[in-house]
Design a protein around this nucleic acid. Structure first.
Lengths: 137, 137
DNA sequence: CTGATTTCGACAATCATTCTCATAAGGCCT
DNA sequence: AGGCCTTATGAGAATGATTGTCGAAATCAG
């Protein structure tokens, strides 16, 4: 069981990729590559593809597939949070739910359609356990 | 001005495609093509691609892009499944979004809080690519 | 520094999808 | 029904994103 740490090596090009990556915009591997070259880097396209995939595997970057089938990447951001509610349509009781995944969903979907400055409203309604019991009993 | 009715023609192959399409499973154009050939049809692959696109434009079929980048199709069913929209807050243009994962998500969260009879509303708004470009230019 | 591995980079290879273009239907009009 | 104009079809070439190949270069442990 040699714990042969298969750790990815931090190479110059990996660093360049991480540096150029933005946490705001989803761009394709080719677009990031272009930008890198524009900034004077000499990284190869294949390397950018491989680097982005590796970083995505590590959870350093997010990847989404656009409508046209291209894979878009952006750097992960751990910050921002806000919550939503799950409300009972009978008694009105609301539970605060924390759904970090919603944020990702919203951004992912927006990116797939090339929309920017996304905001969202999510409303979950149902019948709470108490009301459900009352209804039955 | 010429109201040149640009109506798609109902050809044998269009009919065959509609017939073979299933409302349950999302399959790729190639898979539907295979199935058609297996059933004795002689339709060409390109025709299946074109047919599916045309039908998607007409709203007869739903199309989603898989993680691997393939476009998957299935016949629309005006019922059980519902769509959400991603709307541009500038021009109002809306894109229909299909978020199968979301349905599961809603149910999971509801279950975690023992809520039943869940329904949800999702409103995503942002700025569409056209308006974003117009804003910049 | 040295060697074992991993990564790079240029380019070939894949794979889904689209395009091209000559031919074959649809649809419509009389 | 017969004809005509337009759109659809099919086969295969073309495209475009992504992945594979392989010799050379870089990383990291010892």
């Amino acid at each position: 069981m040699t714990p042969t740490t298969p750790l990815p090596r931090m190479t110059r090009q990996r660093r360049e990729i991480l540096d150029v990556l933005d946490t705001r915009d989803f761009r394709s591997a080719q677009q990031w590559h272009e930008r890198l070259r524009a900034e004077g880097s000499t990284v190869g396209l294949a390397t950018v593809y491989r680097g982005l995939q590796a970083l995505a595997d590590q959870g350093e970057v997010d990847a989404v597939v656009s409508e046209s089938g291209e894979t878009l990447y952006r750097r992960c951001e751990a910050g921002e949070e806000h919550h939503h509610h799950l409300r009972c349509r009978v008694c009105g009781k609301a539970v605060e739910i924390d759904v970090p995944e919603f944020e990702d969903f919203a951004h992912r979907i927006a990116a797939q359609h090339s929309y920017v400055e996304i905001s969202h409203t999510i409303e979950l309604t149902g019948v709470c356990p108490d009301c459900a019991a009352a209804d039955k009993g």
